[in-house]
């Protein structure tokens, strides 16, 4: 009985320590799922060649359709902008102003070559009736699915 209470204390301690380590690394952003355009600019030469994910907002007015499913657009975090050439088929949700995560590599020519285009929507779910009340500008500002600071 005392032994099992000792186990209880040890288990809680291990869980708490593990949780704290991961929480701290999360808050320090030691673990990164995608790079923002600012991160990419800061990385300099390290950004070239490696397969990375770039996340941000599709800059309104920057989308150009090429032949087939190929697309050109700019990804922005409001501070920096990266030009993206995408060959992946865009999801139906893709539009100007929406959050995207693209997977690929930064090229020496200064654009990001992506083969995988993912759309990141925000946490808002609106019925069409509410949707009409929300103007497009506000929707673009509220793409919280991707950190835009």
């Amino acid at each position: 009985m005392n032994r099992s209470r000792l186990f209880l204390i040890i288990a809680i301690a291990v869980a708490a320590i593990g949780f704290t380590i991961i929480a701290a690394s999360g808050i320090n952003k030691n673990l990164v799922y995608y790079w923002t355009p600012s991160d990419l600019h800061k990385a300099g030469d390290k950004a070239y060649g490696a397969t990375i994910r770039l996340g941000g907002q599709v800059l309104p007015g920057s989308v150009h359709h090429q032949s087939g499913s190929a697309l050109d657009f700019d990804v922005t975090d409001k501070h920096q902008t990266v030009h993206v050439k995408s060959t992946g088929i865009p999801p139906q949700m893709f539009r100007e102003g929406i959050g995207v995560v693209v997977e690929g590599t930064m090229t020496r020519e200064g654009f990001f070559q992506s083969e995988r285009l993912m759309v990141s929507h925000n946490n808002e779910y609106r019925s069409p009736k509410d949707g009409q009340a929300v103007d497009a500008k506000k929707l673009i500002e509220s793409t919280k699915g991707v950190d835009v600071k």
Binding site: Y33, S120, N122, K144
Partner: peptide, 10 residues
């Protein structure tokens, strides 16, 4: 805590 593809809690 991290940037993610999944949206924030609604």
């Amino acid at each position: 805590w991290w940037n993610s593809l999944h949206q924030l809690q609604s």
